[in-house]
Design a protein around this nucleic acid. Structure first.
Lengths: 153, 153
DNA sequence: CCGCAGTGGTTGAACGCTCAACTAAATCGC
DNA sequence: GCGATTTAGTTGAGCGTTCAACCACTGCGG
């Protein structure tokens, strides 16, 4: 049986393309700024952030992957690089011999602390400043709805 | 002089992280679906779409790069691959000897036509279906504001 | 005209991500 | 307890993106 495609109407078309352009431009810009100012891509920055917020500045690899919205493979490669940079250290998990624990080093914390102000300024300038408070609120609700929907399916 | 960082308040923090998670999950999902069903990443799909909408199904490389929100280098590499796949052909520009024109082949058009319904379904399912009509409208305004702001700076 | 800055486009290396295959350890089912 | 399944994490190959360097051509200033 042939199922008719529910094509996008002009308004949806416009919304989708605007969203695409905006999110791509935003992420590209922040990525470039972070690479220039801190020598790391945004994905790596986020890993350091999550570690810095965890108790003892450490997390199991799987938990870190979940927190950073990363695949295990991606995280494994990323932590290997972060370890080579001296920003993260790996330790064996005492309760599960399969496990590995990623620990943020003092050097990593210092690097993160140095990068954070500039990055936050970027987020503010490119995301929050152009939007009204109402729009920020709308964006939060929309994003939470989408994120919740995407992780459930 | 020391300038105080304007840190994100808890609401902004939450908004930013939700947006990050949502847009990343959305793009990852659509990318994976497109790769699985059509054998190409979303960026390549978009290039074919832009070509298919242009008069004569062809565009100057620079115009195509702008339309697809891509860097020239990225587009150059991408078109090389699309050409190898037989979906795009390169022609010399008659009015500017530096120029190259990317032309969508019949094969490319057919591949796009075959991929489109599944992709549109994905966009609908993951983006529009979870949102209310009002939220779709909000998202359009927000995205257009951000996109306009980002391209101006 | 001619020199030269700017534009259009490509290239190669380095890097990050994906996918599938793999090892090792924990846990489930009986 | 013991085999089968599942879970944790890593690895390597292949692909796409970035960045800087580069060539070829255009168009502007004098």
């Amino acid at each position: 049986m042939v199922v008719m495609t529910r094509w996008l109407d002009p308004d949806e078309q416009r919304t989708w393309r605007a969203f695409l352009a905006a999110s791509r431009a935003l992420m590209d810009t922040l990525d470039r700024e972070l690479q220039r100012d801190a020598g790391m891509p945004h994905a790596y920055y986020e890993i350091l952030v999550r570690l810095s917020e965890a108790p003892g500045r450490q997390l199991r690899m799987s938990d870190l992957a979940d927190a950073a919205g990363s695949s295990r493979s991606r995280l494994s490669h990323a932590v290997a690089r972060l370890e080579a940079a001296g920003w993260v250290r790996r330790e064996d998990c005492p309760t599960d011999r399969r496990g590995q624990i990623a620990v943020l080093t003092d050097d990593g914390f210092a690097t993160l602390a140095a990068a954070a102000p500039g990055h936050v300024e970027g987020v503010r300038r490119h995301l929050f400043d152009p939007l009204s408070p109402a729009q920020v609120d709308q964006l939060r609700r929309i994003s939470e709805t989408l994120a919740e929907h995407l992780t459930r399916s």
